[in-house]
Simulated scan of single mutants.
Amino acid sequence: MTLKNPDKQNTSYHHGNLKQALVDAYLQLLHEFPVEKISLRKLASHVGVAATAVYNHFPDKMALVVAVKLECLGHFTRYLESHAPDTLEPEVRIRVLGQSYYRYSIEHAQYFERIFQEQVPDEYFTPELINCVMSAEKALRSAVLALLQKNNLPVNQYNEALGTYACWSMAHGITALASKHMNHTACASGRWPEEFLLHNQTSVNNSFEAMTEILIQGILVSARNHTD
């Protein structure tokens, strides 16, 4: 499934995959309206079909939100995989995955927001959605697994999960702080060095290299202590 360019102008729907066209239109409308203002009827009008045609594919708005989340998660996973191939050494791959996570939030902010800002009720969690979420987790987990194996440490569910959790938390934490300019405030106050400003590629590299070193040492120590 190819993610369409959300910046291109929409034209009335004539033929093809209406379900995909509705997902693309939803992403386009987010440039003009907040989420709560995009109704299924507004979406139908934007695409140029009757409202009943929309309900044939999505019985309610949350079903559409899930389809959009699936689209964005797929794009996110492909981005991480393409920027951090499994041929890299695990320490390097963990750092590059973190950097790619951060870069994605900037380069594809609209998709990133759809992944993390819209909550899906339990009753809308389908096997497809769960598998898609776990696909995004897979790259991080495989890097942690390679790190454990490289250091001859116990490979078990706890060590893999904790390592993955830590890697994801680092990447998302740095991204969240930067999105709210908290790191800018800390650097401007003089409490943090300028290299944590994330204002250019060198700063991004230095920040993630320092944080990854701490993260990896923590993962290794924990794995040595957890042998079950």
Rank of each mutant, 00 (worst) to 15 (best):
D86C: 03
S135Y: 00
L70K: 09
F208I: 07
C72F: 07
Y158W: 07
V144L: 09
H46I: 04
E118A: 11
A186H: 02
Q110G: 11
C187D: 02
K8D: 02
A67G: 07
H199F: 01
V47Y: 10
L215A: 10
L43A: 15
Y165G: 08
T227S: 06
A178G: 02
S135F: 02
E128C: 01
N183V: 04
A171S: 15
V49C: 10
E160Q: 09
I130D: 11
N225A: 14
F33H: 14
F58S: 11
S179W: 01
I216E: 00
E128W: 04
N200Q: 05
V23F: 11
F116Q: 05
L43K: 14
G190F: 06
L30K: 10
H181I: 02
D7L: 14
Y26S: 02
P127K: 05
V68F: 04
L22N: 06
Y158E: 13
D122A: 13
S179H: 05
S222T: 12
N205M: 07
F58L: 12
S169N: 07
C187Q: 09
E36C: 13
T185H: 10
V65W: 10
F58R: 15
E113C: 05
A25L: 06
W192C: 03
I38F: 05
K138I: 01
T87H: 03
F58I: 13
K69Y: 08
R95T: 12
H181P: 00
S207W: 00
S169L: 12
E36M: 14
T87K: 03
A143N: 02
A223F: 14
V144Y: 01
L153C: 12
A210M: 07
L40R: 10
S203E: 14
K8P: 02
T202H: 08
E123Y: 04
D86Q: 14
R41Q: 14
K37D: 12
M170P: 00
S169Y: 01
M211D: 03
G74D: 04
K19D: 02
R191K: 13
A136D: 02
G48T: 08
F33D: 03
G98V: 04
V221R: 09
L70W: 03
Y55N: 06
T175C: 09
E36K: 15
M134P: 01
I130G: 01
Y102E: 03
E213C: 10
L40W: 07
I115E: 11
W192Y: 12
M170T: 09
D60M: 05
F208S: 03
R78D: 06
P85E: 08
N159P: 02
